[in-house]
Amino acid sequence: MHSYTVNHLEQLEAEAIFVLRETAAQFEKPVLLFSGGKDSIVMAHLARKAFHPARLPFPLMHVDTGHNFPETIVYRDKFVDEARAELIVASVQESIDKGRVVEEKGPNASRNALQTVTLLDAVEANQFDAALGGARRDEEKARAKERFFSHRDDFGQWDPKNQRPELWNLFNGRKHHGEHFRVFPLSNWTEMDVWQYIRKEEIELPSLYFAHEREVISRGGTWLAVTEFITVAADETPVNKQVRFRTIGDATCTGAVESGADSLDAIIHEVAIARQTERGTRADDKRSETAMEDRKKEGYF
C-alpha cells in the first residue's frame, strides 16, 4: 500500500505556506518584515514558494536601526533583487531625527527598543493591516503563547490575556479600522528545523552565520562585535576570536558565539549539542525576566 508520509519539514513548510497565502487573502495590505536574519530569510523564501510563479503579493520591509553589519545590507539587497520584490526601509535614525524617540545613553545603549516606534509608525504611514514576522514560539517564553494571527489594537499593543483562540487551520483576521495583525508563519518551527530547512532548500545566508575571525569584547556573558556603534569601556579588552552569530539583529546587542562551524552541516551539529538557547546571546532579552513580554505588549516584533 502507498504510504502518504510527510516528514516534519514538509509539514512545517505546508503549514507556513498556508499561513502566508491566508495572509494575502484575508488582508488588504500585508507586509513582510525582513531583517536579513535567518528566520526572516526562511519566511521570505517560503513566501516565494507560496506564490510562485507570480511575484510576492506584498512588499518586504526592513526596520533599519542604522546599526547594521554591512553583510546584512548586501545580502538584503541581493535577495530583494532576485525575488523581484519591493523593499521599504523604515529608519530608526529618521525616528530619532524627527524626535519620535530618544536615543539611549551609556555603554549598553541600544536602538533595539526604539525599533518598536519606527515599526508602528511605518505600519500606520503605509496603512499596512498585517505584518508578517519570522518569530518562532520556541524562541522565548512569551512567544510560546503567541498566535499565528496575532491581533494588535489601534495602539499596536498585544494583550496576551485576551487572545483569540486558534483552532485547526482556521485563522480569524477580522479587525476594526486602525487595528492590525502580526502574522507568524514559522510559529511551530524550532531553531533546528530552520537550519535543517536551510540545508534542504540550499538557501543562501549572510556570511555572519558562518565561523569567521572578528574583533570582539566580552560583555554580559556574550561576545559583542567591536563596531563603530559600541563604546568599549576602559576595563574591556578587544580580542580576536573565531566566532559566528546564531541570530542577527542590531549590532549593539547581538552577541556572537565562539565557533569553528563554517558549513551548514557543522552548524547543525553545533545546534544539536548546544547548551544555550539562541536568544541566550541577545543582550536585549537579559534586561529582565519578562523583557520580551514587556516589549511585545508595546508592539515589538
Partner: peptide
C-alpha cells in the same frame, strides 16, 4: 552528540 551525528536522518522524522 550521537543524535547530532545522525542529523541526516532528522530529515525523515515525522511530527
Amino acid at each position: 552528540a550521537a543524535s547530532a551525528e545522525e542529523t541526516g536522518s532528522y530529515h525523515d522524522m515525522d511530527l
